[in-house]
Design a protein around this nucleic acid. Sequence first.
DNA 1: CAATTAAAATTGGTTAACCAGATTGGTTTG
DNA 2: CAAACCAATCTGGTTAACCAATTTTAATTG
Lengths: 233, 233
Amino acid sequence: MKVEILTKTENGNIQKEIIAKIKDLINFKNLEPGDKLPSERMLAEKFGVSRSNLRETIQKLEFYGILKSMPQSGTFIENIGVTAINGMLDDILRLETPDFKSLVETRILLELKIARLAALRRTDDDLKEMRTALDAYNEKVRAGEDAVEEDLIFHLAIAKAAKNSSLNTFMLVITPGIITNFEKYHVCDKNQSFMGIQEHEDIYDAIKNQDPKLAKAKMKVHFKVLYQYCYNI
Amino acid sequence: MKVEILTKTENGNIQKEIIAKIKDLINFKNLEPGDKLPSERMLAEKFGVSRSNLRETIQKLEFYGILKSMPQSGTFIENIGVTAINGMLDDILRLETPDFKSLVETRILLELKIARLAALRRTDDDLKEMRTALDAYNEKVRAGEDAVEEDLIFHLAIAKAAKNSSLNTFMLVITPGIITNFEKYHVCDKNQSFMGIQEHEDIYDAIKNQDPKLAKAKMKVHFKVLYQYCYNI
DNA sequence: CAATTAAAATTGGTTAACCAGATTGGTTTG
DNA sequence: CAAACCAATCTGGTTAACCAATTTTAATTG
């Protein structure tokens, strides 16, 4: 029931080892925020790992805002306190690969908010894109074909209309794991797709009429089956 | 008002160019899901970029579940339809660096859900960790010192208790941007910290008593000031 | 002795060479 | 003729050499 996302299954362990060693370095050597880390070459040798692996790990910690590499200068500890850094590093080390349940739970949360925001912020162009996606979906379903992709496109169109780039990014990050599991466990069968037509139209209408409460409610209906399924798996 | 997160400010543009070229390749050469991409060396030359840049981009698309590299074998297109891939690639290309407003909006959404889940799922160990973090926070505030870090640790402890790894990851991803902006715009002044003591205690009590609704409500109170601030910036 | 400047060493980033394993095509063999 | 096998080749991953810019050091000069 594990999903390969947000963590590299391969280098994951070696990366975690490196992160732990960096944490030790910061604590043991009493490095303070703003201080410079030893050079990549030195650290790679000290840790007994390749420089490329070390660089990948540093990039990951840059992504989490803990380190910052300056070209031809060095890698620095971001200007947040050592307590916070320790807490975040512990969390990163403890992070597991999200299971399907986590993904679905999170997706529903995101999509409910997105529906609300989309109803509030959608432009006419957004609406047009949603309509196009929805038509493509309906056509596929009526033809009795698989429409998981078209479904996805519709939901991404809504996300775009919500005008929140963080939410958009998270939707994208979550999506592949969802799709893979859908296909693996055959979550979407034909019947559900047919029900989906009306549910999608309801969501679309609510967003069109700029009714955030209704949009969220209709999205909730849409996810009800998925929600229950996810909790019985 | 831009935050350096979720996108590399530097190689961002070159990466987007590469992604666009990969998209063209898939569409123009009619590559289907499951197909193998040309080798890294070939693509690097064809695109006129360095192999390392190409590899970084491929890893990013692997992260989004669009490509999959197999050692000593090749890079393959994941088994999702070409429509979905096009939609996702478009989205990735359009992704902006989240602004502060997006971050705060998303953080509040995540934290409200997290508070609810934590109240439902917290173990006694979780509670102990939260208590420790909270004590550290209170002490700092009462001493008149800055307590942004201790605040963060407390919130991360709640997130841990929510037992949802996706939500945990997203909190971590969002956090650095929030901290940076907090410091930049002096969001947290001493008065707010003092109010924070009671607010935090309320959240803690609700989670301790396993009252999800109250936990969410108290978290909402806690974020009210931030929310308003965020919408007036 | 202090200020200046130039050169040498150090830095992260990039490029090219190398590696082990998977793939492939042709050859051999039953 | 088909199946088994082996070597040449191609693959992503790794390592080492290289680059340009920065930082440090030391020599020079007023």
